[in-house]
Amino acid sequence: MSGALGKDLLGLEHLSGDQIRLILDTAEPFKEVSERAIKKVPALRGKTIVNLFFEASTRTRISFEFAEKRLSADTVNVAASGSSVVKGETLVDTARNLEAMRIDMVVMRHGSSGAAKFLADRIVSSVINAGDGKHEHPTQGLLDLLTIRDHRPIAGTKVCIVGDVLHSRVARSNIWGLLKLGAEVAVCGPASLLPLGIEALGVQVFRRVEEAIAWADVINVLRLQLERMQTGYIPSVREYYRVFGVTMERLERAPRDLLIMHPGPMNRGVEIDSRVADGPHSVILNQVTNGVAVRMAVLYLLAGGKPELAEAAKGASDR
């Protein structure tokens, strides 16, 4: 459909570096829109967007909703608890029903990897992946990139993702995005929470968080799902914090100033020390602010546009 990104945003793995840079560059002016007294532009006026959340996610949904409203789109939120999904409707039927309602875009969060592609293959509307299982969470990856770029050029920057990489869609999107923009990427965590063959993606592996901190310019701390203990991946929260926690004491021994990121919501005292989260190196709230700008950019770039008319329209535009 629209040329720059294609019909959908399903992940960063299959985007080019130029496409990712286009999104980040487009996000810059959108940061300013959110600073205006009237935080609204009419770019997506008349567009209908459904936020389809099969998993609870307050902050991602709110961020998307702000982005949509600031672009003047009409939005409908569908949460799993109130939807027909719990009544046994399949994703295929959900897709067909959405399509029948003539919507323009779907923002979907789903517990199964590949669910966003599944939906995108079956509907004409654009699909934005707001997190599919353990696969990707592209807008989180993009907002992390934008946040790093606010502070330093991404190319050549050393970024270490610390924590439960195995179950993390945020980690995967970050890895693809960072590699495509020329960063050096590492992961660190208990081996039971690092996926087999992760090195093949082009990342280094650190077994100890101290080594990761000594190496990195940026530490992206992942949330530890507390259910990982029950499923036997780690012995206890206390032990995790003692061995892998990003603490002030560990950061003080870092050879250089680090940026500390966290996709949220944080477990203070589990994967991250409160003093680090609230400290001078933390850009965690900048990430939240950038989330809205990046999502506006993605929505804007995916919206509308019929390439075959674009050429004709150029002559009729205002020059």
Binding site: P195, G197, L201
Partner: peptide, 15 residues
């Protein structure tokens, strides 16, 4: 299968 492809696709692997 648990391997690089399952890691990339975010699917739980069977070793």
């Amino acid at each position: 299968h648990e391997g690089v492809t399952s890691t990339r696709l975010g699917l739980k692997g069977i070793p």
